[in-house]
Simulated scan of single mutants.
Amino acid sequence: MHAESDPDAIDPLIGKMRAAAAPFRRTLQELHRSYAGLFDGAVATYIPELALADPSWFGISVATADGLVFEIGDSGRPFSIQSISKPFVFGMAIQDHGRDQVLRRVGVEPTGEAFNSIVLDEATNRPFNPMVNAGAIATTDLIEGADAGERFKRLLAMFRRFTGRDIHIDNAVFLSERITGHRNRAIAHLMRNFGMVGDRFEESLELYFQQCSILVTCRDLAIMGATLANGGQNPLTGETALEPQYVKDVLSIMLSCGMYDFAGEWAYRTGLPAKSGVSGGIVAVVPGVAGIGVYSPLLDPKGNSVRGIRVCQDLSRKFGLHAFEARFSGPSFHDECHPPRRGT
């Protein structure tokens, strides 16, 4: 486990908290040990920079809604956020424009299609949802700003509030996306033909490429998830990243559409709002409790991290985290992460 600091000398209670949380650390250690040798799947190659990832990279991080962070493996290794950016930009667009205006531009229906499919709902003149590329480009097109630079700064500022630290892009990934993004350009031009995006859609497409190239770590994903679990407030910094009334919009779309064309089975088996990306990250949210971040670049045919799915499924099963699990007699996820309060 990689701990960021050792505050035990400041408050002896912290040391007791760590000791009491040892069972949960062991759970993460066991999960990491169980799946570190799993080499099913393949690293993404359609974006050349992603093909450079080492298949052995594997990190797990869990951040609670009250600010405890547990991590193991390659939890501090940076990678490009890719599609995991989509629900957070969707939340920003709703906060900028309100639900009604955003929903006039992009729907919320699962497609059952691959994330990069050129499929549009011509009956409603919208992309199907903001988690597929067409819907994500339309959502990014809604980000306000006087020019490209201002819009990009606003995006970075939003991700800084979610992660609690300064955020940058990987220029090599950005250029790689730009050079090879012919399919996304075709989607953007087709949407412009139908009036689904505005006149500055080409600028928005560049912004979308930048958005997908933002560098994060497994720990960042866990904190982003914990921020959503905490009603939009970052549990480490106390800063509001998303107004509380819009958190349900983001979590709903993550649950129904967040795992590409595996979303239905994910909701059935794991039952957590989540989003994956083709660089190998997964963020999952246990509302009111915690955020889970997993990074492993080996992907299944649908574009989801193989190890990431296994880790989240195991945590959901072990602790009864499924959104629709009404009764559960096993160990409590919250209690295993937390010690008794002072004086108890």
Rank of each mutant, 00 (worst) to 15 (best):
T344C: 04
G231Y: 10
G288N: 03
C218N: 07
R33C: 02
R104F: 05
M17P: 00
M224Q: 02
L207T: 08
V278A: 14
P331Y: 04
P287L: 06
P273R: 05
V106K: 06
G320I: 09
R310P: 00
I292A: 10
E4C: 00
F39L: 12
W57P: 00
T124K: 12
I14Y: 15
D170R: 08
R185V: 02
A222R: 08
V69M: 03
S34V: 00
T240A: 03
D8Q: 11
F162D: 05
H334P: 00
G320T: 04
G293K: 02
S176Q: 05
P23W: 07
V289W: 01
A123H: 10
K275E: 05
L28V: 11
G231V: 05
F58W: 09
D100C: 00
I10L: 15
H168A: 15
I282C: 04
M191Y: 00
R18D: 07
T180D: 03
H97W: 14
Q233F: 03
F201V: 13
P55W: 02
K153V: 06
E177K: 09
S213C: 11
V278L: 08
N116L: 13
L242T: 06
M254A: 04
P340V: 12
S279P: 02
F115K: 06
W57I: 07
R307Q: 08
A323Q: 07
G258Q: 05
V43D: 08
G181C: 04
M196V: 06
L315A: 13
L155N: 00
N304T: 01
S34A: 15
P331T: 03
A146N: 11
A274Y: 02
D54R: 07
C212H: 10
R104E: 14
R269A: 13
V283N: 01
N133S: 08
E49W: 01
H32L: 13
T139S: 12
L120K: 11
L175K: 10
S213L: 12
A93Y: 01
D141S: 12
C218Y: 01
R161I: 01
I72D: 10
F333R: 04
A274S: 10
P297I: 00
E122W: 08
C337H: 01
S316M: 07
N133H: 04
S256F: 07
R327I: 08
A19I: 09
S34C: 02
R310N: 08
K16A: 13
S316Y: 07
P273Y: 07
Y46C: 02
E144Q: 14
P7W: 13
A22H: 12
F128N: 09
R99A: 10
G231T: 03
I169F: 12
G258R: 08
P287S: 05
